[in-house]
Protein backbone atom coordinates (compact mmCIF):
# COMPACT_ATOMS: atom_id res chain seq x y z
CA UNK A 1 0.00 0.00 0.00
CA UNK A 2 1.07 3.54 -0.66
CA UNK A 3 2.12 5.80 2.14
CA UNK A 4 1.07 9.42 2.13
CA UNK A 5 4.66 10.42 1.49
CA UNK A 6 5.04 8.22 -1.58
CA UNK A 7 1.64 9.34 -2.84
CA UNK A 8 2.80 12.94 -2.62
CA UNK A 9 5.95 12.18 -4.58
CA UNK A 10 3.98 10.43 -7.28
CA UNK A 11 1.46 13.24 -7.58
CA UNK A 12 4.32 15.71 -7.80
CA UNK A 13 5.97 13.71 -10.55
CA UNK A 14 2.71 13.53 -12.44
CA UNK A 15 2.16 17.24 -12.05
CA UNK A 16 5.65 18.05 -13.36
CA UNK A 17 5.33 15.60 -16.23
CA UNK A 18 2.16 17.18 -17.46
CA UNK A 19 3.01 20.81 -17.09
CA UNK A 20 6.67 20.70 -18.08
CA UNK A 21 5.56 19.77 -21.57
CA UNK A 22 3.48 22.83 -22.24
CA UNK A 23 6.18 25.32 -23.07
CA UNK A 24 7.40 23.71 -26.30
CA UNK A 25 4.23 24.07 -28.29
CA UNK A 26 4.52 24.84 -31.95
CA UNK A 27 2.63 27.70 -33.48
CA UNK A 28 0.63 27.71 -36.67
CA UNK A 29 -1.68 30.59 -37.42
CA UNK A 30 -3.52 28.63 -40.13
CA UNK A 31 -4.46 25.72 -37.93
CA UNK A 32 -8.15 24.90 -37.94
CA UNK A 33 -9.57 23.21 -34.89
CA UNK A 34 -11.34 19.96 -35.74
CA UNK A 35 -13.78 18.00 -33.59
CA UNK A 36 -14.98 14.52 -34.49
CA UNK A 37 -17.56 12.20 -33.07
CA UNK A 38 -16.51 8.59 -33.54
CA UNK A 39 -18.45 5.35 -33.58
CA UNK A 40 -16.89 2.00 -34.26
CA UNK A 41 -17.12 -1.75 -34.04
CA UNK A 42 -14.49 -4.43 -34.05
CA UNK A 43 -13.07 -7.57 -32.56
CA UNK A 44 -10.99 -8.22 -29.49
CA UNK A 45 -8.82 -10.97 -28.05
CA UNK A 46 -8.18 -11.44 -24.34
CA UNK A 47 -5.70 -13.46 -22.27
CA UNK A 48 -6.35 -13.53 -18.54
CA UNK A 49 -5.23 -15.34 -15.42
CA UNK A 50 -7.42 -14.27 -12.51
CA UNK A 51 -6.26 -16.15 -9.43
CA UNK A 52 -9.54 -15.31 -7.73
CA UNK A 53 -11.12 -17.70 -10.21
CA UNK A 54 -8.38 -20.05 -11.35
CA UNK A 55 -4.63 -20.40 -11.84
CA UNK A 56 -5.38 -21.32 -15.45
CA UNK A 57 -5.01 -19.15 -18.52
CA UNK A 58 -8.30 -18.24 -20.20
CA UNK A 59 -8.18 -16.85 -23.74
CA UNK A 60 -10.71 -15.96 -26.36
CA UNK A 61 -12.05 -13.67 -29.01
CA UNK A 62 -15.05 -11.42 -28.91
CA UNK A 63 -16.71 -8.32 -30.26
CA UNK A 64 -16.47 -4.67 -29.31
CA UNK A 65 -18.47 -1.50 -29.87
CA UNK A 66 -17.05 1.94 -29.26
CA UNK A 67 -17.95 5.61 -29.40
CA UNK A 68 -15.93 8.69 -28.62
CA UNK A 69 -14.72 12.12 -29.54
CA UNK A 70 -11.53 13.66 -30.90
CA UNK A 71 -10.58 17.29 -30.59
CA UNK A 72 -7.60 18.41 -32.63
CA UNK A 73 -6.44 21.86 -31.57
CA UNK A 74 -3.58 24.11 -32.53
CA UNK A 75 -1.74 23.55 -29.29
CA UNK A 76 -2.96 20.19 -28.33
CA UNK A 77 -5.13 17.18 -28.82
CA UNK A 78 -7.69 15.36 -26.74
CA UNK A 79 -9.80 12.31 -27.20
CA UNK A 80 -12.21 10.18 -25.24
CA UNK A 81 -13.89 6.89 -25.86
CA UNK A 82 -16.22 4.44 -24.25
CA UNK A 83 -16.15 0.81 -25.28
CA UNK A 84 -18.01 -2.38 -24.49
CA UNK A 85 -16.41 -5.77 -25.11
CA UNK A 86 -17.83 -9.25 -24.87
CA UNK A 87 -15.43 -12.20 -25.05
CA UNK A 88 -15.83 -15.92 -24.80
CA UNK A 89 -12.78 -17.21 -22.92
CA UNK A 90 -11.74 -20.86 -22.78
CA UNK A 91 -9.11 -22.79 -20.86
CA UNK A 92 -7.30 -25.45 -22.85
CA UNK A 93 -6.48 -27.22 -19.58
CA UNK A 94 -9.88 -27.40 -17.90
CA UNK A 95 -12.08 -27.03 -20.98
CA UNK A 96 -14.22 -24.57 -19.02
CA UNK A 97 -15.64 -21.31 -20.34
CA UNK A 98 -15.77 -17.79 -18.98
CA UNK A 99 -18.01 -15.05 -20.36
CA UNK A 100 -16.18 -11.75 -20.09
CA UNK A 101 -18.08 -8.46 -20.19
CA UNK A 102 -16.01 -5.28 -20.13
CA UNK A 103 -16.95 -1.62 -20.13
CA UNK A 104 -14.17 0.93 -20.28
CA UNK A 105 -13.80 4.63 -20.75
CA UNK A 106 -10.82 6.87 -21.32
CA UNK A 107 -10.09 10.56 -21.56
CA UNK A 108 -6.72 11.77 -22.84
CA UNK A 109 -5.47 15.32 -22.99
CA UNK A 110 -2.25 16.24 -24.79
CA UNK A 111 -0.06 19.27 -25.27
CA UNK A 112 2.11 19.52 -28.34
CA UNK A 113 5.77 19.19 -27.39
CA UNK A 114 7.80 18.56 -30.54
CA UNK A 115 7.28 18.76 -34.29
CA UNK A 116 5.44 21.09 -36.59
CA UNK A 117 2.42 20.97 -38.84
CA UNK A 118 4.15 20.44 -42.15
CA UNK A 119 3.79 16.75 -42.52
CA UNK A 120 6.41 15.64 -40.03
CA UNK A 121 5.98 13.56 -36.93
CA UNK A 122 4.51 15.47 -34.03
CA UNK A 123 5.08 14.47 -30.45
CA UNK A 124 2.65 15.28 -27.65
CA UNK A 125 2.69 14.67 -23.93
CA UNK A 126 -0.17 14.88 -21.51
CA UNK A 127 -2.24 12.86 -19.13
CA UNK A 128 -4.97 10.32 -19.36
CA UNK A 129 -7.61 8.85 -17.13
CA UNK A 130 -8.91 5.36 -17.69
CA UNK A 131 -11.82 3.48 -16.16
CA UNK A 132 -12.41 -0.24 -16.58
CA UNK A 133 -15.15 -2.51 -15.25
CA UNK A 134 -14.99 -6.22 -16.01
CA UNK A 135 -17.41 -9.01 -15.15
CA UNK A 136 -16.07 -12.53 -15.62
CA UNK A 137 -18.72 -15.24 -15.41
CA UNK A 138 -17.31 -18.75 -14.99
CA UNK A 139 -20.00 -20.96 -16.42
CA UNK A 140 -19.00 -24.05 -14.41
CA UNK A 141 -19.01 -22.35 -11.01
CA UNK A 142 -22.04 -21.82 -8.80
CA UNK A 143 -21.99 -19.37 -5.87
CA UNK A 144 -18.83 -17.59 -7.01
CA UNK A 145 -19.35 -17.63 -10.75
CA UNK A 146 -19.39 -13.87 -11.27
CA UNK A 147 -16.19 -11.98 -10.49
CA UNK A 148 -16.11 -8.23 -10.96
CA UNK A 149 -13.11 -5.93 -10.96
CA UNK A 150 -13.05 -2.19 -11.30
CA UNK A 151 -10.06 0.07 -12.06
CA UNK A 152 -9.57 3.78 -12.27
CA UNK A 153 -6.13 4.98 -13.38
CA UNK A 154 -4.40 8.30 -13.73
CA UNK A 155 -1.40 8.28 -16.02
CA UNK A 156 1.08 10.42 -17.85
CA UNK A 157 0.71 9.68 -21.51
CA UNK A 158 2.34 10.41 -24.83
CA UNK A 159 1.19 10.65 -28.41
CA UNK A 160 2.86 10.55 -31.80
CA UNK A 161 1.11 11.44 -35.03
CA UNK A 162 2.06 11.88 -38.64
CA UNK A 163 -0.31 13.13 -41.30
CA UNK A 164 0.63 12.08 -44.83
CA UNK A 165 -0.77 11.90 -48.33
CA UNK A 166 -0.95 8.79 -50.45
CA UNK A 167 -2.55 8.59 -53.90
CA UNK A 168 -3.70 12.19 -53.31
CA UNK A 169 -5.66 11.06 -50.25
CA UNK A 170 -5.20 12.38 -46.70
CA UNK A 171 -4.13 9.92 -44.03
CA UNK A 172 -2.74 10.09 -40.53
CA UNK A 173 -0.77 7.49 -38.59
CA UNK A 174 -0.50 7.81 -34.84
CA UNK A 175 0.18 6.21 -31.51
CA UNK A 176 -0.99 6.85 -27.96
CA UNK A 177 0.46 5.20 -24.91
CA UNK A 178 -0.07 5.57 -21.20
CA UNK A 179 1.57 4.19 -18.10
CA UNK A 180 -0.50 4.68 -14.92
CA UNK A 181 1.17 6.00 -11.81
CA UNK A 182 -1.87 5.79 -9.58
CA UNK A 183 -4.62 3.22 -9.83
CA UNK A 184 -7.66 2.67 -7.69
CA UNK A 185 -8.75 -0.97 -7.87
CA UNK A 186 -11.79 -2.59 -6.35
CA UNK A 187 -12.05 -6.36 -6.05
CA UNK A 188 -14.46 -8.72 -4.28
CA UNK A 189 -13.71 -10.17 -0.88
CA UNK A 190 -10.83 -12.65 -0.64
CA UNK A 191 -12.92 -15.82 -0.94
CA UNK A 192 -16.18 -14.50 -2.26
CA UNK A 193 -17.68 -12.51 -5.10
CA UNK A 194 -19.25 -10.14 -2.60
CA UNK A 195 -17.87 -6.59 -2.43
CA UNK A 196 -16.62 -5.38 0.95
CA UNK A 197 -19.03 -2.43 1.08
CA UNK A 198 -22.00 -4.71 0.43
CA UNK A 199 -21.54 -6.80 3.58
CA UNK A 200 -24.54 -6.14 5.82
CA UNK A 201 -25.81 -3.58 3.34
CA UNK A 202 -29.37 -4.49 2.40
CA UNK A 203 -29.96 -1.54 0.12
CA UNK A 204 -26.70 -0.77 -1.67
CA UNK A 205 -26.29 2.33 -3.81
CA UNK A 206 -24.40 2.13 -7.09
CA UNK A 207 -21.32 3.72 -5.57
CA UNK A 208 -21.12 1.02 -2.90
CA UNK A 209 -19.80 -1.23 -5.66
CA UNK A 210 -16.83 1.13 -6.02
CA UNK A 211 -15.94 1.88 -2.42
CA UNK A 212 -13.51 0.06 -0.10
CA UNK A 213 -10.97 -0.47 -2.87
CA UNK A 214 -7.23 0.13 -2.68
CA UNK A 215 -4.82 2.60 -4.24
CA UNK A 216 -1.94 0.94 -6.08
CA UNK A 217 1.17 2.13 -7.81
CA UNK A 218 4.19 0.53 -9.43
CA UNK A 219 5.39 -2.55 -7.65
CA UNK A 220 1.83 -3.69 -7.00
CA UNK A 221 0.20 -2.59 -10.20
CA UNK A 222 1.58 -2.27 -13.70
CA UNK A 223 -0.30 -1.36 -16.83
CA UNK A 224 0.79 -0.28 -20.27
CA UNK A 225 -1.88 0.72 -22.72
CA UNK A 226 -1.30 1.70 -26.34
CA UNK A 227 -3.47 2.72 -29.25
CA UNK A 228 -2.06 2.70 -32.78
CA UNK A 229 -4.27 4.26 -35.42
CA UNK A 230 -4.56 5.01 -39.09
CA UNK A 231 -7.03 7.70 -40.13
CA UNK A 232 -8.29 8.33 -43.64
CA UNK A 233 -9.96 11.70 -44.22
CA UNK A 234 -12.58 12.37 -46.87
CA UNK A 235 -12.63 15.67 -48.71
CA UNK A 236 -15.70 16.74 -46.71
CA UNK A 237 -13.74 16.45 -43.49
CA UNK A 238 -15.26 13.19 -42.26
CA UNK A 239 -13.21 10.05 -42.25
CA UNK A 240 -12.55 6.46 -41.32
CA UNK A 241 -10.35 5.26 -38.48
CA UNK A 242 -8.62 1.96 -37.91
CA UNK A 243 -7.38 1.40 -34.34
CA UNK A 244 -5.34 -1.30 -32.73
CA UNK A 245 -5.51 -1.24 -28.93
CA UNK A 246 -3.21 -3.24 -26.72
CA UNK A 247 -3.12 -3.35 -22.95
CA UNK A 248 -1.09 -5.40 -20.50
CA UNK A 249 -2.23 -5.29 -16.92
CA UNK A 250 -0.80 -6.91 -13.76
CA UNK A 251 -2.21 -6.52 -10.25
CA UNK A 252 -0.12 -8.14 -7.52
CA UNK A 253 -2.20 -8.58 -4.39
CA UNK A 254 -4.26 -11.38 -2.90
CA UNK A 255 -5.86 -13.11 -5.89
CA UNK A 256 -3.51 -11.49 -8.45
CA UNK A 257 -4.67 -10.85 -12.00
CA UNK A 258 -2.77 -10.61 -15.26
CA UNK A 259 -4.58 -9.53 -18.37
CA UNK A 260 -3.60 -8.92 -21.98
CA UNK A 261 -6.18 -7.33 -24.24
CA UNK A 262 -6.07 -6.66 -27.97
CA UNK A 263 -8.75 -4.95 -30.00
CA UNK A 264 -9.06 -3.84 -33.61
CA UNK A 265 -11.77 -1.23 -34.12
CA UNK A 266 -12.99 0.34 -37.34
CA UNK A 267 -14.67 3.68 -36.73
CA UNK A 268 -16.31 6.46 -38.62
CA UNK A 269 -15.17 10.02 -37.98
CA UNK A 270 -17.99 12.56 -38.15
CA UNK A 271 -16.76 16.11 -38.22
CA UNK A 272 -18.78 18.34 -35.91
Amino acid sequence: MLTLNSMTKIYSLLFLTVFATQNVSAQDDDFQKRIFFTTGVGGSYVNVIDQGISPLLYSGVGGAAQFGHIEDREKGYSQSYGRFDFNLLDSETSGATIYSYKAEGSYQHYFKSLGNDEGKWRFYTGFSTHFKWVLRDHTSFTNNSQHIETRFSLAPSAMLRRPFELWSKSFELGLFTHLPLITYANRPLFASTKFPALVNNEDPAWYDYLTNGKVYSWGKYFNIRTQTYLNYYFKNGNGLKLDYYWSYDSLKDVNPIKTGEHAIIISTLFKL
Binding site: S54, P55, T93, G95, S140, F141, N143, N144, S145
Partner: peptide
Protein backbone atom coordinates in the same frame (compact mmCIF):
# COMPACT_ATOMS: atom_id res chain seq x y z
CA UNK B 1 -17.29 -21.68 -3.70
CA UNK B 2 -15.42 -23.22 -6.63
CA UNK B 3 -11.83 -22.97 -7.70
CA UNK B 4 -9.61 -24.74 -10.21
CA UNK B 5 -6.35 -26.62 -9.85
CA UNK B 6 -3.35 -26.21 -12.16
CA UNK B 7 -4.21 -29.51 -13.89
CA UNK B 8 -7.74 -28.33 -14.68
Amino acid sequence: INNELPNG
